[in-house]
Design a protein around this nucleic acid. Structure first.
Lengths: 235, 235
DNA sequence: CTGAGGCGGATCGTATACGAAGACGTCGAC
DNA sequence: GTCGACGTCTTCGTATACGATCCGCCTCAG
């Protein structure tokens, strides 16, 4: 009642519990119960009950000081996300990363964001570029996002700048997308779309710092791996 | 009231919501709302509201048929779990995997279970052994579990067979643990403990199929990486 | 030693958010 | 055409989550 009447009623308790998980994930460090309560904007006793429930299921753990963090069970739960896609893609990511000497990763579409699921750094990296799993940014920014959008009809593109729309159209035409300094300055990336039957649109991508890399050659290599993954999953 | 009065009261709604996530993770494939409701043992409308709330937060997504699965946001949430540990360990895992030609992974303790957080397969694998992240088994079984327990005083060991206890004691004495056909037949593994300040006990491990591998040499290599990770995190 | 402050944890009356049942529309199969 | 399965939404009684208050422990200042 005091809350919004959004689209359909959502469960207040469950919603708050999820927000606790988000708060803990964003914090990245152990929080006190009070800290969680303040971040949630609720009374301590509420946060206490929510945390006890989450702890009961193993999603949060407490250190010696009583502070709370996300627990390993959380990772175990999420490991099942697109597990077949990840399983098929991982060897390909490793191969590409080592052949090109660049960090290679798999990203998928999540509403209007591009989420990195798994990432592999090359064996011998001159300048190791980390692309942490869980990284999110708007689909309209960066090579992976544009590669993903190139799989969708323009009608489903989120509101984007004309420039971004043109870049996506171009990516769709030539089969791969690039980005220079878009997300992180001095980093370039190349991405190819990856469409698997049933599953949402995805992309294989690499990031690198070298200014004289051959984007087309990289894209060709990525496309080979994308095809291999798609074929393995019968897409 | 109708429910148990367990140790401390837990929120029924939040608890059920988490069970939905567990059900979806275990299923590994899209489920209908009815399917979730039956697995939960509740009325459809309850599962519906829970799923709507989870979907509202992006933790579950729905395909064209209306079926539900865990969404990418779930992976993004869990990516924060021990992120510094994972970040430091990943390059080491890659190096060890490629040097030894064996799948190398990082596992941590979760209550009385051993959970695999991240795993890396070697570049050129003769017989690629997959160690999926999220894999869980009792700490008392397998090399990683025994390596982890070797970091703890015997008083904190879960009820184990005398054999297991002896194996842990042996692991503590020589600095590494092994297992032959314990978890999966014809697979052997070697693990070393990894203690990082503040964080719970962990282990670095490899799995392999070769019967004539030199466990001590492998352990020495793993120990070097474990030390590197520990030093990097100031443990 | 002692007192204050911060924090985790327990208790409890009350408003409320929840659980269960049912109805409706749709889609697909037989 | 008919039946069944499923998603969606509404209603309603009540179980339940809420949140103020209190308690006890620990830490740290003085």
């Amino acid at each position: 009642m005091t809350e919004q009447a959004r689209g359909g009623a959502v469960s207040q308790t469950l919603s708050r519990g999820i927000r606790v998980l988000e708060i803990l994930a964003d914090a990245g460090e152990p929080l006190t119960i009070d800290g969680v309560a303040q971040a949630l904007g609720v009374h301590r006793s509420i946060a206490y009950r929510l945390l006890r429930t989450l702890e009961h299921h193993g999603l949060v753990v407490r250190d010696a000081n009583g502070r709370v963090t996300l627990g390993p069970r959380m990772a175990a739960l999420a490991a099942g996300v697109a597990h077949d896609l990840q399983a098929e893609a991982l060897p390909e990511l490793t191969a590409v990363a080592n052949e090109l000497g660049m960090t290679c990763f798999l990203a998928v579409l999540d509403h209007d964001e591009c989420v990195t699921l798994v990432s592999v750094e090359p064996r011998h990296a001159v300048a190791p570029v980390a692309q942490r799993p869980g990284t999110r940014h708007p689909v309209t920014a960066g090579a992976p996002g544009k590669a993903i959008l190139s799989l969708l009809p323009p009608a489903q593109w989120p509101a984007a700048s004309p420039d971004a729309a043109r870049a996506v159209a171009e990516a769709a035409a030539r089969g791969y997308a690039t980005s220079h300094d878009e997300v992180i300055p001095s980093l370039r990336s190349v991405a190819v779309p990856l469409a698997v039957r049933g599953r949402g649109p995805a992309a294989l991508a690499v990031v690198h710092v070298s200014g004289d890399a051959d984007d087309a050659r990289i894209a060709e290599r990525l496309t080979r791996s994308a095809r291999a993954v798609r074929d393995a999953l019968g897409g």
